[in-house]
Design a protein around this nucleic acid. Structure first.
Length: 955
RNA sequence: GCGGGAGUCGCCCAGCCUGGUCAAAGGCGUAGGGUUUAGGACCCUAUCUCUCAGGAGUUCGUGGGUUCAAAUCCCACCUCCCGCACCA
């Protein structure tokens, strides 16, 4: 049967829409508030984006069927800069981006023309993404939709950021950023040529020496080496500048003078001095020692200050430069000996000397020096220890000592940060070369605050995190977080209420917005206007601060409306489940928790976080440049929404990266088609007296309900789906075999019942086709509104399960013998145990072993201790073999056997095995009890029979 | 460096949290059979080694340990992947 997916899906979507099933208001039922990180609309969503939303939708639909009042809303995050960069590139007519829009995203020329305006881009993709979400069948309450630049939301963010500031969570400070000197703006990846992120290295430092009336600053990555300094290097061929910096005068290279002008310092060049005029002078270090200044050509004026300090014991370049001078009998240099300050395993006193000799370095322009430097720096950093020359830092490991020395020097005004562009040169789109600028008036959220962190930890401790093994990662993130800039100078968004030069940064205006979903529907339907959303209003509704009277009067709305909105918030909050991709663990999800604990009282703290991995396409990462992006809507059109949903879910468990491929989609299509076909065939006939296999399959169905429900609760959707679609099939196949062998024609009613349960459980995963199946089964109403199948232990028939199990294992044994012996059977005879003592011992052993005990000694001891079974010591062989039998059985079966009532093996096998055995092996099967008078037992097999393990004779 | 994660029977990948149901699911590949005018698609069977009686042996990166029992817990080591910020 060919399925027209789009047609079926459309049909059911219309039904859902008409019945307003997903529009959720407070009612008397328990609620679940499930949210997903809203999308940033600068491209259509592809299959990868679909994953998080699909998982959340399954989650929502599941709880809806479980009887909860589920709110699943959606918004759109316009805040940020990427569309600005896009608009600029489109304005400039850049071929790459235009081709992408045309060929990958299929945007019409007309629409592209409007894209010179950033908001038009966002608007376009907003609609595009929304359509895709609807087509995927997401059960979203669209009445609550908003974008982050609508006035109501901005009011909310203003309130949020003001509240944070008043709670002392926001501080001002300095921060280095990538900066375009021409545009006078910070640059991010989207603003640069080739889309490179300007990387700032802030592990670079400037150390001040004093040379007469001047400051002689050098730059270094290793502040700890000041203890091993022997001299300073200057390039004799460079013309240095005398520069007034605040109230000091520095000698630096011209390049450096330009850089520090962006460090919020007062900088002006007041003179110059050739490098060779400084050679031979002395500069004083932090403890007043006089350090000679020597010439070295490797010193580059573009690096740092253009001046370098020399640590010949540990820096290969310094060592080699010193050697070069000594070879030329430089007078000053010949008196200098390296001062070792770090002890490292595997190296002697002078590591730099050793490594230069090992690599065969010739002179200071030797390329091998780079390699030597890299190797030694790393080794000394990871393994090295500071020695007694380092004064109070003696014995510190370099990794920790470096930081301490830095702090100490900085405290004494001998050291400053000197951030550099790690991946220079980075060019702005305007063509200018970017620099590092230090902003002194940047606003930060003070995530480094220990008290704040502690609150967040409390929240995490009580929160459900799925999968749980990502919990440690959150702990680490909280430990590691520190101040984070929360405002920037460009992009879409909300202005800082107290400093209108700044816009609230996009990761800071998206942390507690879930609460706004409880308000947005009243803004959207006109109950309130953005002007009504005053501070007093939010304080009352969200924080229960103040009283309804003044909140209403200040906001200029009725008390009834304020109460109604507060009621809505109180009903839906807190967030019961927050879904997001794993890439947001380090930022959004952690900020989400931090901001909630900073603003809301404890009962409104988030309850659960669900994190999922990303999606690969045929085993490789999806990327525009690879051209392997499939827009979600295209995929839906080609394959149907449900097959895509299932393919995404079935390809990986939560945190795993899912590998999406078209083979699995068509496999799923086939599966669903045959299931639909079966549903059309099944009649809801009355069910007659149940036979043993009926009881078995119904019991199995109960077990499946239990397993699947538990799996979904843990968001192990892949496992659940797999059970619904495939594992179920194994049991149904066995059932079919059994009923066919018996020639039964009356099973349609039972299969109808089982498949109804199956379809109901499939419904959250593949909602459209499940509706279709449900209607083909002629069940009433919508399956999405039916209730989730309930597990009841009473409906599990332990005897049926153990007897079917006996049947299966007996057939397996016969097959096994046939396989090994390669004989074709003419006659099969079974002998079941009839020894009462064996049965008694067997039961006793079940009792002993059901908890997992399987030690022969222990089992035997317990058997002998019981007078009923003390005879067990006469048959150790039997006990040992039985231990093996039971050992290889599942706990579930063991428990079943223990539970089940008296069971007659012979009767069961002779009535049931004959039919199925005939079908399987095409011979008649005879069953004897070992004690039967008329037994046919030419090979004396009967005595080997054990309970649930009949002896077998094949001729 | 700091932090997180992974290494499973030809390949991909489940199992590990909660030890025994594990020679270890599923998919691909391969082999044999069926169906088909052919290609394709589909169905059945087999797929660590040995074994003519339902059995035995050796496996889950390497080496140790805990335990009656380890793919699963602990320790060490090797290899690989990812994140480190003001960016959504």
């Amino acid at each position: 049967m060919e399925i027209n997916w789009n047609e079926i899906e459309n049909k059911w979507r219309t039904k859902w829409k008409e019945s307003k099933d997903f529009e959720t208001n407070p009612n008397e039922k328990p609620k679940k508030f499930i949210t997903v990180a809203y999308p940033y609309p600068n491209s259509p969503q592809h299959i990868g984006h679909g994953r998080t939303y699909t998982l959340a939708d399954v989650h929502s639909r599941f709880y809806r069927m479980k009887g909860y009042n589920v709110l699943f809303p959606m918004g759109f995050h316009y805040t940020g800069t990427p569309v600005l960069g896009m608009a600029k590139r489109i304005q400039a007519g850049e071929k790459e981006i235009l081709d992408g829009l045309r060929n990958v995203y299929h945007v019409s020329e007309e629409d592209i023309k409007t894209f010179v305006e950033p908001i038009k881009i966002a608007d376009y993709f907003h609609e595009e993404i929304k359509s895709g979400m609807i087509e995927m069948g997401y059960s979203i309450d669209w009445r609550r939709e908003f974008t982050t630049i609508v006035p109501g939301y901005q009011k909310f963010v203003e309130w949020q950021i003001t509240t944070l500031k008043e709670n002392n969570k926001i501080i001002q400070g300095s921060h280095p950023v990538g900066w375009c000197p021409v545009d006078q703006n910070p640059v991010s990846q989207h603003d640069t040529m080739g889309d490179v992120e300007p990387k700032i290295d802030d592990k670079n430092f400037l150390i001040k020496f004093v040379l007469d009336e001047f400051i002689f600053p050098v730059t270094t990555l290793r502040p700890e080496t000041i203890f091993g300094i022997t001299n300073l290097w200057i390039n004799p061929n460079v013309l240095y500048k005398k520069v007034s910096v605040d109230n000091e005068v520095w000698i630096v290279s011209e390049d450096c003078a330009k850089k520090i002008a962006f460090f919020e310092k007062d900088v002006s060049v007041i003179g110059e001095i050739p490098g060779n005029q400084i050679i031979g002078k002395y500069a004083k270090n932090h403890d007043g020692r006089k350090i000679p200044i020597l010439p070295a050509e490797f010193v580059e004026p573009s690096m740092g200050t253009g001046l370098v300090m020399s640590v010949p014991a540990h820096a290969p370049k310094d060592y080699q430069a010193l050697m070069d001078l000594k070879v030329n009998n430089h007078e000053l240099a010949s008196k200098i000996e390296p001062i070792p300050i770090i002890v490292t395993k595997g190296y002697g006193e002078y590591p730099a000397k050793e490594i230069c000799e090992k690599l065969g370095v010739d002179n200071q322009s030797d390329e091998k020096l780079e390699e030597a430097t890299k190797e030694l720096y790393l080794k000394e950093f990871t393994d090295g220890k500071l020695n007694e020359k380092c004064d109070k830092f003696n014995n510190e490991k370099v990794q920790f000592g470096r930081e301490k020395i830095r702090e100490w020097l900085e405290g004494n005004n001998h050291l400053e940060k000197f951030p550099i562009l790690e991946n220079a040169p980075v060019r702005c789109r305007c063509g200018a070369e970017c620099v590092v600028k230090i902003l002194n008036n940047q606003w930060f959220l003070n995530y480094g605050d220990e008290k704040w962190k502690e609150l967040a930890r409390n929240c995490f401790d009580e929160m459900n995190i799925l999968p749980n093994n990502i919990r440690t990662e959150f702990k680490e993130v909280i430990d590691w977080l520190h101040e984070r800039a929360c405002a920037r100078q460009q992009g879409l968004g909300t202005k800082l209420p107290w400093d209108k030069d700044w816009i609230v940064e996009s990761l800071s205006d998206s942390v507690i917005y879930m609460s706004y979903y409880t308000i947005s529907r009243f803004v959207n339907d006109g109950t309130v206007t953005p002007d009504n959303l005053t501070r007093e209003f939010f304080d009352y509704v969200l924080l229960n601060k103040g009283d309804v009277k003044s909140a209403a009067s200040v906001s200029n709305i009725s008390e009834g409306i304020v109460k109604m909105i507060k009621n809505e918030f109180d009903y839906f909050y807190p967030v019961d489940s927050r879904h997001s991709g794993r890439d947001l663990v380090q930022n959004h999800l952690s900020f989400f928790v931090l901001n909630h604990v900073a603003i809301f009282e404890k009962k409104f703290w988030p309850q659960e976080i669900v994190v999922n991995g990303s999606v690969m396409m045929d085993g490789v990462k999806m990327s525009k440049s690879m051209g392997n992006i499939i827009p979600l809507r295209t995929a839906i059109k080609d394959h149907g929404a449900d097959p895509i949903r299932l393919a995404i879910i079935s390809s990986a468990e939560l945190l795993q990266d899912a590998d999406f491929n078209m083979d699995s989609v068509s496999g799923i299509q086939n599966k669903l088609e045959s299931l639909l076909e079966e549903c059309s065939r099944l009649k809801n006939n009355p069910i007659n007296e149940l036979e043993i296999e009926d009881k078995w399959i119904l019991s199995k169905t109960q077990n499946k309900i239990l397993e699947i429900t538990e799996a979904i609760q843990k968001m192990r959707l892949r496992e659940a789906l797999h059970d619904i679609l495939f594992t179920f099939e194994t049991d149904l196949n066995w059932y079919a075999k059994r009923t066919q062998a018996k020639g039964r024609k009356d099973v349609s009613g039972i299969l109808h019942q089982i498949n109804s349960i199956r379809v109901a459980m499939l419904s959250p995963f593949a909602p459209h086709i499940a509706e279709e199946m449900w209607s083909k089964l002629k069940n009433s109403g919508l399956v999405s509104k039916s209730s989730w199948p309930k597990y009841s232990k009473e409906r599990v028939d332990a005897t049926a399960i153990q007897s079917e199990d006996l049947l299966k294992s007996t057939i397996e044994d016969i097959t096994n013998i046939l396989k090994v012996t390669k004989i074709s059977p003419k006659k099969i005879v079974l002998y079941v145990n009839s020894d009462e003592m064996k049965s008694k011992i067997y039961h006793k052993m079940l009792n002993i072993m059901v908890g997992g005990q399987n030690n022969m000694g222990v089992v035997m001891k317990e058997l002998i201790a019981d007078p009923q079974t003390t005879d067990a010591k006469k048959m150790p062989n039997f006990v040992q073999k039985t231990i093996k039998d039971l050992h290889s059985e599942s706990e579930e079966i063991k428990a079943m056997k223990l539970e089940s009532t008296e069971f007659n093996e012979k009767e069961f096998l002779s009535s049931e095995l004959t039919s199925i055995g005939k079908k399987e092996f095409d011979v008649d099967i005879q069953v004897f009890s070992a004690s039967d008078e008329d037994i046919y037992d030419p090979k004396e097999k009967a005595k080997h029979a054990r309970p649930f393990k009949p002896a077998i004779l094949i001729e």
